[in-house]
Design a protein around this nucleic acid. Sequence first.
DNA 1: GTAATCTATGTCAGTCGCTGAAAGATCTCA
DNA 2: TGAGATCTTTCAGCGACTGACATAGATTAC
Lengths: 218, 218
Amino acid sequence: MGLRERKKEKTRLAILDAALDLFLEQGYDSTTVEQIAGSVDISPRTFFRYFSSKDSLVMWFHDHGEEIITETLRSRPPGEPPFTSMVHGMRAVLGDMQDSTPQDAERFLKLRRVLDDQPRLVGLSVARGAETERRLAAEVAARRGADPADDRVSHLVVAIAMAAVRVGFECPRKDQPDLREVVEQMQETITLVEGMMRPGWDVQDAREPADPREAPDA
Amino acid sequence: MGLRERKKEKTRLAILDAALDLFLEQGYDSTTVEQIAGSVDISPRTFFRYFSSKDSLVMWFHDHGEEIITETLRSRPPGEPPFTSMVHGMRAVLGDMQDSTPQDAERFLKLRRVLDDQPRLVGLSVARGAETERRLAAEVAARRGADPADDRVSHLVVAIAMAAVRVGFECPRKDQPDLREVVEQMQETITLVEGMMRPGWDVQDAREPADPREAPDA
DNA sequence: GTAATCTATGTCAGTCGCTGAAAGATCTCA
DNA sequence: TGAGATCTTTCAGCGACTGACATAGATTAC
């Protein structure tokens, strides 16, 4: 990897870090691209050469996650139930998070805080999720041998799985969770949704709101 | 209802119709607010008094649906399983669609076509869905007597239900379906997702595709 | 080591979405 | 009809984003 490449990567991360800090300081909307660019000494035009939009600053996590899930799907055994494969994909994402460098972990946590008081941005991430969903659904449909363009079951598999990840990501309400906690929360949510896939799943623990962990069957 | 009110409503619909037609003719991105305003003889500034953004032109359906679901949730018996309530809400939306005027039906179908070749816009709708989801989840959590701020099961109930509606909305690939067909598709999808909520739901009908590329393993 | 080349960056001008403020037009109602 | 509320337009301006062109720097060929 040449010196040039490394410099680019460095700039990229510098922009990201500067942006996250500014967002946390003064809010997403009141931070301009000009400011971000200014604080890493590049021109606004250059900013857009690194990130296609201000919004895309907050989507790198999503995009990375999508890659991992796609790879995982391709590597799962063909006969496996699609939802199970999706669950493996999601767990792979969580695994990747646990292996991440301290710097990456910090970025992730900052991102979470930014998204936390800006529901619109979560929305954007979800928005990109809609496209992701089509791609992943095609992937899943291919595995099931169904028509990729018109297989609602595949779409639903993906949509439900992604919903679970998102809910897990959003839910921890503690203000300064550490990475491990967030990952655990997400893991629990995935487990939760796995357990839901049977009749009555949504009643089950409504009877006992005090204690979330309860016997799996009534 | 005064003359003023009626005139406003008329303008609103005129804008909507003009916009939908322009979007279909020349694409969403290459249609400017100036053009839309021009074709109904109002100033661009006035456009923004009727619709808070260009994007919001494409969200009226979503917003309307959210209202109906919220109302429905409030009117369901307290003991009912939350997912069942959500299903009632979604069916209410479909019912409302069937009762809509021919003009509204046409608008809906045009909207569908616009969204069809602009995944980003579906995304936007979904994006707003994220906020909707928080509201509805709070509603559901209240019904379950759980903490509205931190109840993942409620979030999941809503997220999964909305995913189903969205998938049903997106999936019909026929280019010129009529309203009845779309509604039926959505209905089927809802039914489908109801049936999924048990172990193995995602394997189940993988056994009977027309062309079983894979043998269901043991 | 110098020249040729490639690529990242900066500058500039311009489009589009969107907003606040102030002035003008229109409707409503006493 | 006149007073007051409400709707619309005009205008000036911000911020995101883009294309075109020029420049500075790194890379490669000689």
